[in-house]
Every structure is written in structure tokens, then in C-alpha cells.
Design a protein around this nucleic acid. Structure first.
Length: 291
DNA sequence: AGATGATCCTGTATGC
DNA sequence: TGCATACAGGATCATC
């Protein structure tokens, strides 16, 4: 569920709640979320007594670092939520799997109905799965993006969702950025013009930053660390809007399956014609353009 | 290399 | 109302 803007919003809430606090005790209710070499009991033992140094983020991963080393890596999967400043008297919500008791008496709880989330303990700040640069990292440049896309023939949408290439983009923001850039989600990456790659890179940055500004996108279930929904759903232009007239040209938004995920797009603005409209004046439409 | 489908799960919406 | 099916902000693995 959560993509980069949602995870970043949660990161800020979590960071503020745990800054400088000591972990008194950790308990788990479902050990299945714990992956990696350290099991749930060991992980709970390792966490006890630690003090937070910093809560960071890389793509959709939260990196909860402690003084003296050690790092808790959290991924929220599709339905994971982190709630902070929960009074100990409050009953566990359904699907509460992890509870961290802090020195201020309050708790951090991890709730995840679908259990696609993971929790991993890293003793040394080693690397996660092979993740590409964070999508908002300035070192992830349009040039780097273009160089990668030039040798790939997969549909651009599939590559945006591949976290090894660039980390943080998910189904919603991928569709929104492709729409903003006027690119069909099925477009083979290496067929994209240099200009299209730059437009997409810029659109991704912009869409993700606006998502953060709005505290994330709440379609159904996303809530931030304080339990508040995000405000970005009202700004979505294509995601989830099949049949709704495109804001730009009035053509009904369509959907198609790409890389196993539903992709929403405007057949007009994201076809050859639409690309041309958005490109620099005078550029010719690609061969095979229709209409 | 890339596509596809299955898998891990539960909740919700829809259709009959 | 009940029941079946599809689908959901993700990631990974097997198979073709």
C-alpha cells in the first residue's frame, strides 16, 4: 500500500515519536513478519535497551537506527501501518503484530492485516535487498535514468515498479507520473526519446514531492503514524479513475494490465498524439502515429 | 531478458 | 441475505 510519500510521512511521525527514547521492551504477536537471519525472540531481545539514533528511509523501507549500531528494517507491504504514541491501556487493534514499549510509557505498534510487511534486524548497517537509489535522492539523475532505460525493452511501467532500478515508486505514483509526462505505460523503455525520459524523471520527482506535501494518498486504508489519512487522493488525475473524462482532453481514462498491475492512463494524452502535444513544439510524432 | 502466474494474507466491493 | 468472485498503495519466486 504505502509508496515513498506515505512511507516518508510515516517516517517523520515515527522519528518524532521515538527520538531520544529508550526501548524498554518489545513483544510480538505474530512472528511471521520477521525475516532474515534473526528470529522474532532474538530480535525482541536485541532491541530491548536500545536508544533511537535516527529513523531514515530508503525507497519504501524504514530504517530505524540505534545508538551503538544496529538497525531495524521495516517494510509495510500492502496494508502495514505504524501507530505511535499509543497509550498502553489501549486495546490492541486487530492484526497488531508488533509492539515496542518506549521509555515514555507510550508504545509503537505495527498493524498489518495482510501480513505482507517485513521486519528485519541488521546488526551492521548493511545493505537491504539490491535497491536502486531513492527516487528523491539528487544522485538519481535523469542521465542515470536514461542510461538504464536505453538498454531495457520492458514496458516503462514495469521498470518504474522495479525497486532495483529506482526505489520508492509504486502503482499510484507511477501512473500519475506517466500521465504527467504523456507516456503510455506499455511503452518499451528503450523506445523512449531522450526528451520523454527527462519529462518522466521530472514528473516522478514532482508527483512524489507533492504526495509528501499532502501527507500521502489515502484510497482505502492508509493512515499516517498519528492515525490521520493522507490528502493526496483528491489530486490524483488518473489512478483509479477509469471512465472518468481526462482533465486535459476529455477522453475517458482507460486501464490496462501491465506487469501484473492495473495501470490507468489517458489513451489520448499518453498516445503518440498526446506525447507530441507535451513535447517541444515542432517535434515530429513517432512513426506509426495514428489519428 | 522479460512475461506470466502463483504465492504470501485479509478485507471489501461487486455480482448473481 | 447469502455466497462466489475479483481486486487491493508490494515483492518474490518458479516457469515458460
Amino acid at each position: 500500500m504505502p509508496e515513498l510519500p506515505e512511507v516518508e510521512t510515516i517516517r517523520r511521525g515515527l522519528g518524532a515519536a521515538v527520538a531520544g527514547r529508550r526501548i524498554e521492551r518489545v513483544e510480538w504477536l505474530d512472528p511471521r513478519l520477521v525475516r532474515g537471519t534473526v528470529d522474532a525472540d532474538t530480535l525482541a531481545a536485541r532491541l530491548a535497551g536500545r536508544t533511537t539514533r535516527h529513523v531514515g528511509r530508503h525507497g519504501k523501507f524504514l530504517l530505524w537506527r540505534f545508538t551503538g549500531g544496529g538497525m531495524l528494517v521495516l517494510h509495510l507491504g500492502m496494508s502495514g501501518r505504524i501507530l505511535v504514541s499509543v497509550p498502553p491501556t489501549e486495546p490492541y487493534a486487530p492484526h497488531t503484530h508488533f509492539v515496542v514499549r518506549l521509555s515514555d510509557g507510550f508504545q509503537v505498534r505495527l498493524v498489518d492485516p495482510r501480513r505482507f510487511g517485513r521486519i528485519v534486524w541488521e546488526e551492521r548497517a548493511g545493505r537491504l535487498p539490491a535497491l536502486g537509489p531513492d527516487a528523491l535522492d539528487p544522485r538519481w539523475t535523469a542521465d542515470r535514468f536514461a542510461a538504464e532505460l536505453a538498454r531495457r525493452s520492458a514496458p516503462i511501467k514495469a521498470l518504474l515498479l522495479d525497486q532495483r532500478l529506482v526505489a520508492g515508486i509504486g502503482n499510484i505514483y507511477a501512473d500519475e507520473a506517466l500521465y504527467a509526462a504523456g507516456i503510455d505505460p506499455r511503452m518499451p523503455a528503450r523506445m523512449m526519446t531522450e526528451d520523454a525520459v527527462r519529462r518522466l524523471h521530472r514528473a516522478l520527482r514532482s508527483v512524489l514531492r507533492r504526495g509528501i506535501r499532502d501527507g500521502g494518498t489515502t484510497i482505502r486504508t492508509y493512515l499516517d503514524a498519528a492515525g490521520r489519512p493522507g490528502r493526496h487522493a483528491a489530486e490524483l488525475l488518473v489512478y483509479g479513475r477509469r471512465g472518468v473524462p481526462c482533465r486535459h482532453c476529455g477522453t475517458p481514462i482507460a486501464s490496462v494490465r501491465v506487469a501484473g498491475r492495473t495501470s490507468y492512463y489517458c489513451p489520448q494524452c499518453q498516445g503518440p498524439q498526446g506525447s507530441r502535444l507535451l513535447q517541444d513544439a515542432g517535434r515530429e510524432a513517432p512513426v506509426g502515429a495514428t489519428l
